[in-house]
Design a protein around this nucleic acid. Structure first.
Length: 412
RNA sequence: GGAGAGAUGGCAGAGCGGUUAAUUGCGACGGUCUUGAAAACCGUUGAAGAAUAUUAAUUCUUCCGGGGGUUCGAAUCCCUCUCUCUCCGCCA
């Protein structure tokens, strides 16, 4: 979340920011300013009372019982004021936490920013291939790849079972992604899938996305919707040396999403699942170089997709479409030749200091402490990549699905 | 699940009702010495809010895991929550 002191000093900037994001609750900033003025007055009264009490207690022996009664009255007053103070603080917090991150400068350069901007495209020539592509759902009927019928008996819709060829490809993709990321310095972690509410607050998905997250009431735990949450939370309350940055980490986890409200075509096959596997990469860096790191991550994921030799594109998401925590987001989409549509396989964001404010992730440089910047991206979502690969690679030999060359060492 | 111990600054670790924002050690930063470095020595080293005032500061308040209570006064006593550790039980 944004620091309150920042909000107070940058009122206009934030209002402009909210407008750009099409944020609905426009009086939010005014509310916060009003509440803050109230709180200031209360704090001043409390300070004065504390001063009197402190003086009295320091000179206790001299004053003794003379002013004693006054002190007791004044203490009662202080208690009342304290309650008020905390009440307003909570109110401010509740409003503060829903203010999204400041969007990147790039969104102020282009006037048209309600549309997706394609910034890179690769493999377009594949569109020329003349072949009767069938989608991965049909393919799965022909080959042993995955099964949603059996899984729906077990868990309901939105779950999947991999076996045979599908399982082999799945593991190949997974191991290749981990290998590729690791080669580029991302340290791997195996993470818990059940997390506390506090961790979700830390990375900023709560309270906005609370309807998308599975909640295990009995134990007050939540299923992770993305590895980003436990992965970033590893570093809560950390103080890094400037020279140790950037921190690069990755993890494969299953991700659990309720997907409340989605229906129809999108739900079919491997496209939208309640549980899916994804390799996530994150970086933690200083407060200046985060956009440079973002570019490096962008190139990293680009290289990975290129090596799979699929038709993909990179999109700069419009600022009214990026998540609360993000200042700038790029989406990576692969073209599915069977479904004849684009599907998102990665989303890469710079969260600047929005998360590190919550999680108290800082670095120290020349005895001064600063908040780190955090970045995250998928590298990559496995079911969707698997689906798009089998759809494209079915054309290379009749009645067979070919495996991309790069995956062969991981396939066997 | 049962019993016990604990959470203090960047880290380690004292303090366990009254100049304690907190002894000390290490680290970090600055300086002296040196051709340079090390060693040694000297100095600096938490955060937030407010007032005065203005670029240099001064003053006040709050903060020793979170929340609440006792007291003229709490890091220190009590309650509660969260987390960590040790022992016992259960278990892949």
């Amino acid at each position: 979340m944004l620091k309150l002191s920042f909000i107070l000093k940058n009122k206009n900037k934030i209002i402009e920011n909210l407008q750009k994001r099409d944020f609905k609750y426009k009086l939010l900033i005014n509310d916060i300013l009003l509440l803050n003025n109230k709180i200031k007055k209360i704090k001043k009264k409390i300070d004065n009372i504390s001063k009197i009490i402190n003086k009295f207690s320091k000179n206790y022996i001299f004053f003794k019982k003379k002013i004693y009664k006054d002190i007791i009255n004044i203490k009662k007053k202080k208690k009342k004021l304290n309650k008020k103070y905390k009440y307003y603080k909570k109110k401010i917090f509740k409003k503060n936490i829903i203010i999204p991150n400041i969007i990147d400068k790039i969104y102020f350069k282009n006037k048209k920013n309600n549309n997706k901007t394609i910034i890179y495209e690769y493999g377009k020539e594949k569109l020329k291939i003349k072949y009767n592509f069938i989608d991965h759902i049909e393919l799965s009927k022909k080959f042993e790849i995955f099964n949603t019928k059996i899984s729906s008996n077990i868990s309901g819709t939105g779950f999947v079972i991999y076996s045979g060829l599908g399982l082999k490809l799945y593991k190949a993709l997974l191991n290749y992604f981990l290998y590729f990321n690791n080669k580029n310095g991302y340290k791997e972690y195996i993470l818990p899938y059940l997390i506390k509410k506090q961790s979700i607050y830390g990375t900023g998905q709560y309270p906005k996305n609370k309807n998308q997250i599975y909640n295990i009431n009995k134990d007050k735990l939540y299923l992770i919707p993305t590895a980003e949450i436990p992965l970033i939370n590893i570093y809560q309350n950390k103080l890094f040396n400037y020279n140790d940055l950037p921190i690069k980490a990755q993890s494969y986890t299953e991700c659990f999403r309720r997907e409340a409200g989605s229906y129809g075509k999108n739900v079919k096959g491997l496209n939208r699942l309640h549980q899916f596997g994804k390799v996530e990469i994150i970086e933690i860096c200083d407060n200046i170089s985060s956009n440079l790191r973002l570019k490096k991550m962008l190139n990293h994921i680009k290289k990975l997709l290129k090596s799979l030799d699929v038709y993909f594109r990179i999109i700069l998401l419009p600022c009214n479409d990026i998540s609360n925590t993000s200042s700038i987001t790029y989406d990576f989409e692969i073209y599915c030749f069977g479904l004849k549509r684009w599907i998102e396989v990665s989303s890469l964001s710079n969260c600047t200091d929005y998360q590190s404010n919550n999680l108290n992730i800082r670095f120290i440089k020349k005895n001064k402490k600063y908040f780190c910047h955090t970045l995250n991206g998928s590298s990559l979502s496995i079911p969707r990549v698997l689906a798009s690969i089998i759809e494209l690679y079915q054309c290379k030999k009749k009645n067979r699905i070919v495996i991309p060359n790069i995956l062969l060492p991981f396939y066997n």
